[in-house]
Design a binder for these strands. Structure first.
Length: 429
RNA sequence: GGAGGGGUUCCCGAGUGGUCAAAGGGAGCAGACUGUAAAUCUGCCGGCGAAGCCUACGGAGGUUCAAGUCCUCCCCCCUCCA
């Protein structure tokens, strides 16, 4: 282990937004091995990029010898956290949540080593689902002042729009989690996005009251791009961590399209490269920054999808965009390939088709739709009309241009939407 | 329980009988310019093989040649009062 402790690392990499007690936390992270927890909501079957900051913070914790405790909120998801939301969200069924919780468990294992006490994975449904209402009110509820709760930012925001009682209880349950984990797993630090500040502080208070035990909290900045766009999660194009939902190539492309102003910050947050190397990005000018973006994309893809997937995504980008190899003097710790190896299109999403289907061929717009490059035929038609559709790098001129056997090259047809979205059709007999 | 105000296309938000697939903004997509960035400019932005048709304005009915717009009932949300 290097001279830097977990606190220093999180601090210099930009993970820390707020902490409850600076000195004690520094001391804790520097001189002891502690258990720290973060909750993950199983509201979808996969986590997305928005959860990456918390995940990476746990990765750093583990690397520094602390014990991360990942808590899947199977119980709290039944309630729904109002924090940071302007409206109540759909309440999922128990079954949906269980399925999601399981998937998220698996996903987290890709980042953290859950072996032999190195990290813990729990589901709060295990203790929340069986709580007795009256008992809970008497033991836990009495510790909460409604007046204080209403002052919390997360609730205040909702006072105009309305807040249902079920959501109002969320804070109590999350607080109970912290208390429970502190008591049973000796967890002393809860971390989370900055919107969790109120919930975290409430948990600390509760633990102090019930256990007379001092525990701590830390929050991460809520990431938006420099342009103010939400990270990863847009209604349509969420960037998932699951390779089946967002291919490694798409994932790589997401990162390489990072805005200039975000490159350095993202390298610090989403890769494990040493800060000394990351700081070098400041010296890169204009187009040179693309090398830093390539490293960011490569390293981020490697962490989520593995080395092999990262290399093929990189190779595909090289072949499709003429991405320049990264000079060996930059980011020496990165294992990104430094030379253009054999061109490899394998990372581009592919679709299988049978040769027979191409005998009569498809109108171009049909094909773009069939292959999911366009959500509807109308969209495909517009795309072609606007000159954004390419077959084997040849622009499609009319929407119903026939794409048939003649377009098959080496059993493949390469379709492209705009500059960045590719699909390879593999034609079999 | 009473009174009032609302539910519009991915989001915000106009629209009070035809000219409404529905203003405007945001997001998104494509094009130009570039560095696969940003900014800017342009086009697109419910679906369907053109015209045209179909589906849409919380839900169900009704009035009308014609309804997002009027009427009835219902559901949901908000505010004030109790």
């Amino acid at each position: 282990m290097s001279g830097k402790n977990a606190y220093d690392i999180l601090q210099e990499r930009g993970f820390i937004e707020q902490i409850t007690d600076e000195e004690p936390i520094k001391d804790l992270l520097g001189n002891k091995s502690i258990t720290c927890y973060i909750g993950f909501d199983p509201t979808a079957s996969s986590l997305h990029i928005g959860s990456l900051v918390p995940i990476m913070s746990l990765v750093h914790m583990q690397r520094c010898g602390h014990q991360p405790l990942a808590l899947v909120g199977g119980g709290t998801a039944l309630i729904g956290d109002p924090s940071g939301k302007t409206e109540m969200r759909r309440i999922l069924t128990r079954e949906e949540i269980d399925i999601n919780a399981e998937a998220i468990k698996n996903q987290l294992s890709r980042y953290l080593n859950f072996g032999e006490g190195k990290a813990i994975l729990l589901n709060n449904a295990d203790w929340l689902a069986n709580l007795n209402y009256i008992e809970f009110l008497r033991d836990i509820g009495r510790c909460f002042s409604v007046n204080r709760m209403l002052a919390a930012e997360s609730y205040r925001m909702r006072m105009e729009k309305g807040l249902s009682f079920i959501e109002f209880n969320y804070m109590l349950l999350q607080s109970y989690d912290f208390y429970y984990l502190s008591k049973n797993y000796n967890c002393v630090l809860e971390m989370g996005g900055n919107d969790q500040w109120g919930n975290i502080v409430a948990g600390i208070d509760l633990t102090r009251r019930l256990e007379e035990k001092k525990v701590y909290g830390m929050t991460f900045p809520l990431l938006a791009t420099s342009q103010g766009h939400k990270m990863g999660k847009t209604e349509k194009g969420t960037v998932w961590l699951d390779a089946d939902l967002t291919t490694p190539y798409e994932y790589f492309q997401y990162w390489i399209n990072t805005e200039d102003a975000d490159v350095k910050r993202f390298l610090a947050l989403f890769t494990l490269l040493p800060m000394e190397e990351i700081n070098e990005t400041a010296r890169l000018l204009d187009a040179e920054l693309n090398m830093a973006k390539a490293v960011l994309a490569f390293e981020a893809t490697k962490i989520t999808h593995g080395q092999e997937a990262a290399v093929s995504a990189w190779a595909a980008a090289v072949s499709n965009f003429g991405l320049k190899p990264v000079s060996p003097s930059l980011f020496p710790s990165s294992v990104i390939p430094r030379t253009v190896a054999a061109v490899d299109m394998s990372a581009i999403p592919t679709v299988e088709k049978i040769r027979e289907e191409f005998v009569s061929g498809f109108p171009a717009f049909e094909l773009f739709h069939a292959v999911d490059l366009c959500a509807t035929r109308s969209e495909a038609r517009r795309l072609i009309q606007q000159g954004g559709a390419y077959v084997n790098d040849r622009q499609v001129k009319t929407f119903d241009e026939n794409i048939g056997s003649g377009d098959i090259i080496d059993n493949e047809i390469h379709l492209r939407k705009g500059k960045k979205q590719h699909i390879l059709i593999k034609v079999s007999q």
